[in-house]
Simulated assay, not measured.
Amino acid sequence: MLGYDGTGFWGSQKQANVRTVQRELECALERLGGRTTSTEFAGRTDRGVHAVGQVARSVDVRPEMPAEAFRNALNRLTPDDLAISSVSRVEAGFHPRYDATWREYRYRLWVGGKQPLMERFAWTRRTELDCEAMARASVLLEGTHNLAAFTGGGEGVPWSARAAARRGTVRTIYHCGVRAVGPWWGILPGPGSGIEIRIVADGFLPQLVRTVTGGLVSVGLREHPPEWFAELLEGADRRSGPVLAPAHGLSLWRVGYDNDVPDPDPNGKQIVSLQPAHTECG
């Protein structure tokens, strides 16, 4: 498992001539094992998106080394904005993307004055948001829905190739919640409050969480009522969907496998009934 500050990366997936998480991880593995190594990730994150629970797989470049020693050695070879939190040896055939049963993303906002210590990790809004209205809108996404109105990258329109795929833009959202959170850094004096949007689903689509966040902020600003989300689900067309929230407030929080379960919701309710893994998770 690995985490990273996405500010300095052009996303997680390796691309030519730019710095990515995958490229830095593979370079560290090559230095540790003395041979070129490829990796697969549980999910793609866009430029500027962070992670605390990303999962990656590679061949075992140092099979004689205990897992903890392997992690420590690899961490000495990775840059400061990329860290390995745990290493496990798995059975042949394990795939971090296709074997996942659920994923969790969290998006954080700060409503108030400028806070330099969190500018890279939360979307700062100066105007007060109606958190209760945002919460009422968020629960409308729970269940199995066509999420085309919240799908970016040109894949949420009726004529897209995604629309013709087996699952298309249909996903099951086990939990979508909005809650107030306290400052998680050294705060400068002045009024303000934090908001966290948490989504747990069987799979994600391009820019889904950022688009949902943009819509929830519109509801919080009272530009739309909470019921607008039901209209967007029914219309299933990105052209009528919300604006896109910036990347830097978003983190890939956790990926679940087998009998893993997410943390309960704020009321202590278990979130997800585990389903078989899907082979087309985004």
Rank of each mutant, 00 (worst) to 15 (best):
I173Y: 02
Y174D: 15
Y174W: 14
H175L: 15
H175S: 15
G177N: 08
G177W: 05
W184H: 09
G186P: 00
G186T: 13
G186E: 14
L188R: 14
P189I: 09
G194Q: 00
E196R: 06
I197R: 02
I197S: 07
I199C: 12
V200D: 08
A201D: 05
D202Q: 10
G203Y: 01
F204C: 11
Q207N: 15
V209W: 00
V209L: 06
R210K: 08
V212G: 03
S218T: 02
V219C: 12
V219L: 07
G220H: 05
R222H: 12
E227Q: 13
W228P: 12
F229G: 07
A230C: 00
A230Q: 12
A230K: 10
E231R: 14
L232D: 12
E234H: 10
E234P: 00
G235F: 01
G235C: 06
G235T: 05
A236R: 08
A236D: 09
S240L: 13
G241H: 02
V243T: 05
L244G: 01
P246Q: 02
A247M: 03
A247V: 00
L250E: 03
S251F: 06
S251I: 01
L252M: 08
G256Q: 07
G256S: 12
N259V: 08
P262L: 10
P264R: 10
P264N: 11
D265W: 03
N267W: 06
G268C: 09
Q270N: 11
Q270T: 12
Q270S: 14
V272F: 11
L274Q: 14
Q275S: 15
P276S: 07
